[in-house]
Simulated assay, not measured.
Amino acid sequence: MMPQESVFHRYVALGDSFTEGVGDPDATRPNGLRGWADRVAEELAQRSADFGYANLAIRGRLMVPIIEEQVDAAVALEPDLVTIYAGGNDFMRPTIDLDALVERYDDAIGKLAATGATVLMWTAYDTGWAALFGKLRGRSAIYNELIREVADRHGAKIVDFWRFGEYRDLRMWDWDRLHMSTVGHQNMAIRVLETLGVEHHITVDPLGPDLPTDRAARLRADLLWTKRFVLPWIGRRIRGTSSGDDVVAKRPTLAPIR
């Protein structure tokens, strides 16, 4: 007998820009973004007449603010499915105490799991192939081992981003090389639904033409990226500001998604 497919009625998504949907613009949606979580919600809504979806994620958030601002709010919504992605912005800080960070995360996952909801969390992506972000590979690998222990302890499901080799193609990423592109979000939605064991109708758009590979073109692209992303990012670190300082959650309450 085939296992019965899970049906969810109250889905709450937590996290940072990854879950808010940055890199997948859609002017018709709150915050002007769609993203993988919206796409997952659209599929889940087809299986439940009373489906509600909330997305509390805000770009730029570190793990502790995500926990402090979003976890209790999520519990209050009485979800039966919670997805949470956190830690990516912490990795980019000069120093990080991974053990202390994951200890806080462990408490948060325990609180979410205690609601009886299915909890879905992520490993960090393997950036070993990337020139700049590759320097974070060691942190990410340690974090992932700690995260797997947390998931095991609380019965959470893992979306194993570390092993998704398709994201080595730069066309899966937006111009800033940090956030997924529309195609990357489509693919992530499929990965999430597969982890949940839910059949879906999502397709991934064609990747488009190959990116230039000659040295001059790569140099021009790197210089533009440095000007448009790296320098503004450094400036925010110096000023102590965040890209999400003036942003609010795009779906703060459970509501149908169309």
Rank of each mutant, 00 (worst) to 15 (best):
W122L: 12
L77W: 02
M1I: 11
H9F: 06
Q46I: 04
V64I: 13
P209L: 01
D50W: 01
G60E: 05
H179C: 08
W129C: 10
V22G: 06
Y167I: 00
H185E: 01
W225E: 05
S181I: 10
G52I: 01
A54I: 00
A130F: 09
L120S: 10
L44R: 01
Y125D: 07
E166L: 10
P209K: 01
M1E: 14
K250Y: 04
L254W: 03
I142H: 15
E199H: 14
D205A: 15
D245T: 00
H179Y: 08
H185L: 00
L56F: 02
G197I: 02
A255L: 02
D222Y: 12
I58Y: 02
A13D: 10
M2K: 15
V159R: 07
L254I: 02
G240A: 10
W233V: 05
K135C: 08
Y125W: 09
V7R: 13
A189F: 03
F91T: 03
V102N: 14
A100Q: 13
V119Q: 03
D72S: 15
A54C: 03
G87L: 09
D50E: 10
L146H: 12
D72Y: 07
W162E: 08
Y143C: 11
L132I: 15
L224R: 15
I84S: 03
M1N: 14
E5W: 04
K227F: 11
G88T: 14
E42D: 10
K227P: 06
A130D: 13
M121I: 15
L146W: 06
E166F: 09
D246K: 13
N31H: 07
W122D: 11
F133I: 06
I109G: 03
E20V: 06
H201Y: 04
M63S: 13
E43R: 07
M2V: 14
R177I: 04
T95S: 15
D214Y: 02
S6I: 08
L81F: 05
A141E: 14
D80A: 05
G88V: 10
L136F: 13
A221R: 14
A117M: 08
Q186G: 04
E5D: 03
V22Y: 09
A41F: 06
L178E: 07
A217N: 06
R218C: 10
E20Y: 06
G88C: 11
I190Y: 05
F229C: 12
L193A: 03
P232F: 00
A114Y: 04
T241S: 08
L196K: 03
G197L: 00
G138I: 05
I66K: 00
H201L: 09
R239Q: 07
L224H: 13
R251K: 07
R258Y: 09
K157S: 11
E68K: 10
L193K: 05
Q70I: 02
D16C: 06
A156K: 00
D174M: 08
V71Q: 04
S140H: 11
L178Q: 10
E68V: 01
A76Q: 04
R47H: 07
R258F: 08
E166I: 09
L14K: 12
Q4Y: 06
W175V: 14
R251Q: 08
L98C: 08
E103V: 09
N187K: 15
A221S: 14
G240L: 05
F91I: 04
I202A: 04
I234T: 09
L120N: 05
R61K: 14
H200N: 06
F133N: 11
G184N: 09
R29N: 11
P65W: 00
R177L: 14
D99H: 12
I109Y: 03
